[in-house]
Structures are given as C-alpha cells and as structure tokens.
Design a protein around this nucleic acid. Structure first.
Lengths: 244, 244
DNA sequence: CGGCTAATTGACATGTATCAATTAGGGTGG
DNA sequence: CCACCCTAATTGATACATGTCAATTAGCCG
C-alpha cells in the first residue's frame, strides 16, 4: 500500500521509486469526503486545483447556452481529473460527484515539484494526457459518425472496460449509476431515445438490466456495433526518462 | 529567429532560454517537404514519431468500419501533432497534408531529453496537451449538443481564431482549403447539408465566399450561434518550473 | 475543348427529437 | 407495513432536422 490511489494506478505501468511515491502522496494529503451530487467546480469559476479521485464516481460536463448539457467524461477511482487547471485559471468544465466520493484536491503549484524533480512522473502525466486525448477523439468519432445505438453501446463498453481495468473481479456486470438522461447527455441523445436504444440492445441480446446493474451478455457484439477500439490495453513507455 | 517554428510558438508564452531553444531545435533538425494530400501516418501503423509542422496545413482523422471519416483536428504552422505516439506504439489516427507542407518529424525518444533536462519545456508540453484536450471537449459538445448550422459556424470560427493567432495580419478573411465534404467530416455532417448550412450562414450575413477564401462578415454573430468559447486567449502559466 | 472534381439544388426518406401520458421503483413518514 | 411522493423509466403519436439519392452546374487544369 502506497497510501496514494494515483501512485497505485501509475505503478501498474512502471514500478515507482520511493521518492516518486512520496511525491505522489503529497498530491493526496488533503482528502475530502463528498456526498452524491456535490459540485466540485463550476465552469468559469476561478480554480487552481486538480483532483485525484480516491473512492466513488464523478463526472465532468459542459452546459451550453440553451441549457443543454454535454457530459465529457466519467471519472473512476484512481483517476486524476480537473487537469485543465494546469493550463487555465478558470475551470473549463464543471465537476460533480456521481456517488459518495473521496476526493484529493491539490493546488497546481504542486505540479512544479513533480516536473522539476521527477521527470519520469512528468512524462507519465504527459502520456496519460495523450491517452485521454485519444479517448476523446474516439468519442468525437462516435458522436460525429455513428448511430444512436452505436453511441450508447460505445458508452457502455467503455464503462465496462475501464471498470474492469480497476477491478479484475468484474466480468460482465457493472453498476449503472447513470440515469438515462445522463446517458443521453454523454452521447448527445435524448433520454427518450436512450430508453429505446437500451431496449433495442436488450432485444438484440447484447445487454440485460438487473436491479441497478447492467449485465453485458455479449461484449464482443456490443463492442462491434459500437465501433469500439480498446486502447487502454497497452501504453508504450519505451521513452521514459530514468526514475529519480 | 530561433530556427525552430515550435520554439517561436512557445516563446509567445514565455521567453525561452538559449538552452531551451537548442533543445527544441533538435526536434526540428530533420525537415521534410511534402506535397498536398501526402499521407504522413496511417492509423494502426507502427509509429514512433511525432511532428512539428513548419509550413502548410495538415489534418488528423479516423476512418470507421463503414468507411466514414471523422476529422479530428486541423494542424497549422507551429503546431506539434501526432503526439499520441508518446503514449502508444501504433498510430491512433491518420495524418495527411492539406497543402504543400514542411514537416519536421522527430522520434519520441527525443522527448526523454526534454523531460529530463528541461522541466519547464516539459510543463509547457503538458499545458499544451491540456489546452488541446479542452479544445476537443468543446468540439464534443458542439457535435453532441448543437445544430448543424452551429457546428459549421464553430468550425469556421475556430479556424479564424487560430489562424489569426498565427498571423496578426488576418482580420476577417481566411483561405478555405477544406472541401464541403471535409467540413462535413469535421462536423459530423453530410457534404450536401454543409452546403445548405454555408448558404444559410451567407444569407444571415455572417460569412461570404470570395474565390477560395472565406470572409467572416460578423465574427461576433458567428461565434454566438456557434456557442464558441475562445480559450486560446490566455493560458495560466503561474506554476511553471524555473527554466534551465 | 474536354474531363475531372467540387458545389449546388430538389425531392424524398429516415433517424432522432418533442410532447404527453402512464407506469415502475425507491425512499420516507406515519 | 402501508400510503405517499418523487424521480426515473417507459411508451405512443407526431414533428423536424438531417441524410440520401439523383441530377445539374460551376470551376479548374491539362
């Protein structure tokens, strides 16, 4: 146990030195407990913080002028998020918890130490940023070029893949903490239409509802109609600097 | 003159040290000239390179199973692109020139030196990655939650803002190197519908065509209907490490 | 003067949104 | 344990935005 959720995540890619672990722990020395639905940051508010999520789920979203919402990304335990604070003084997105959550905020000034003293960690931060960028481009293609059914399938597949990455015990069943309205806001659809697509996916034998859970009955099939590419599998870390 | 297009870009945010300039120049010591329409990388090909664009335009895109294309981003002079190579061994997107172009490829191993010896440059790389991530989230909201007309307006506004950032002489007229098919592939629309939306924008007095150029007649109005947020204006660099 | 690609236009098809009920489910207080 | 309430899910009818198909025109290059 490193005492840092984020360190554990990174340690899955490369074994960390003690010094690196300590540097990451400093990012998490200020944990805060939040109830479900708590607002962490609102778009355009001044914000110099970034966050590591230790327990629970969160999400980031934008609200447009007409009041509609675009959910940008779901955040799971071990994720670092709110990272646009590194570039901007005002929040570029709103952040809210989707469940009871433990959150570790840290000031972006803390990044200076990481970049100054731990080049390998800095490189990992950059690599993660690139991986998230790719995840966003995949979603862009999903929204721009695939059908409603495919978009919903892509969201569900991505949730399964990411949650399983965090917990190897997960095989085909995940908690579905999203309302259909939220699924719609993530996929650019209406709640009503999401409902129809979920039913269609169920009728196709691809998924099944069970209490608040979702059972993926045909992962391959779901991924296929979603046009889903699993890119989490392997990062290429060949260029990393030496650890310090 | 630094001899590095990318260094000039970064120097607009912070004055660079000689040592930093030299490090950036090394990324560009292998320029290559390409004709219009040249493929730089194809999705899924092995690729350990990243690129700095010195002259001309390029773009990145994905092709889906059904053959449809999603254009992810346009790249202009001074842009670094193909950066997902930092995280993956295979290209996550295809790259192609949109005009005669001068390109400077560098192996991702070169990043190691930057992160090891130039923490401030590394931090700038991270900041730029975050800014591009935000740009993608804005586009996600555009595709997910706005009308066809708004999406086209957003693309045109973004092009104007970015090109003007590169060249202060640009006031309201930009070359439109995109076919309507390409505009459609960028905005998730059909070429036919793009044509109608362009006409609508023209009828609204927002834009005008002139040879191969586009004249933005009402930038405010175009940005308003596009739901456009200009985030290029100011980065917050307060946390940057000391230069080396 | 072809010959090619891109732009334009019209008629029509379809996917998704909208509107309006109704039903189901999950807490809470009595 | 039941009655109630509130939110989410579900369903049907209809409207509308965008896609599709097909044809024509414009523009450019050799």
């Amino acid at each position: 146990m490193t005492g840092s959720c984020f360190a554990e995540r990174l340690a899955r890619y490369v074994p960390l030195t003690d010094s690196e672990k300590r540097a990451l722990e400093r990012l998490e020395n200020n944990p805060r407990d939040l109830p479900r639905g708590a607002t962490i940051t609102r778009e355009n508010d001044n914000c110099d913080e970034m966050y590591v999520l230790r327990h629970g789920w969160a999400m980031s979203y934008l609200i447009l002028d007409d009041g509609s919402r675009q959910i940008l990304r779901l955040h799971f335990p071990g994720d670092m998020f709110g990272t646009s604070s590194a570039a901007f003084g005002e929040a570029t997105e709103s952040l809210v918890t989707m469940s009871h959550a433990t959150l570790c905020p840290f000031d972006k000034q803390a990044l200076r130490v990481v970049f100054d003293e731990h080049p390998r960690l800095a490189a990992l931060f950059f690599i993660i940023a690139q991986a998230e960028r790719v995840s966003l481009t995949d979603r862009l293609a999903s929204l721009g070029r695939t059908s409603a059914k495919a978009r919903v399938a892509a969201l569900l597949t991505d949730m399964l893949v990411r949650l399983r990455f965090l917990n190897k015990d997960i095989s085909d069943t995940i908690p579905l903490k999203l309302t259909q309205e939220e699924i719609g806001d993530a996929t650019g659809l209406t709640a009503v239409h999401v409902n129809r697509m979920m039913r269609a996916l169920a009728e196709d034998g691809l998924v099944m509802r069970n209490n608040g859970n979702l059972v993926i009955r045909d992962e391959q099939g779901l991924a296929r109609i979603a046009n889903y590419v699993n890119r989490y599998a392997e990062l290429d870390l060949g260029w990393l600097p030496a650890p310090r």
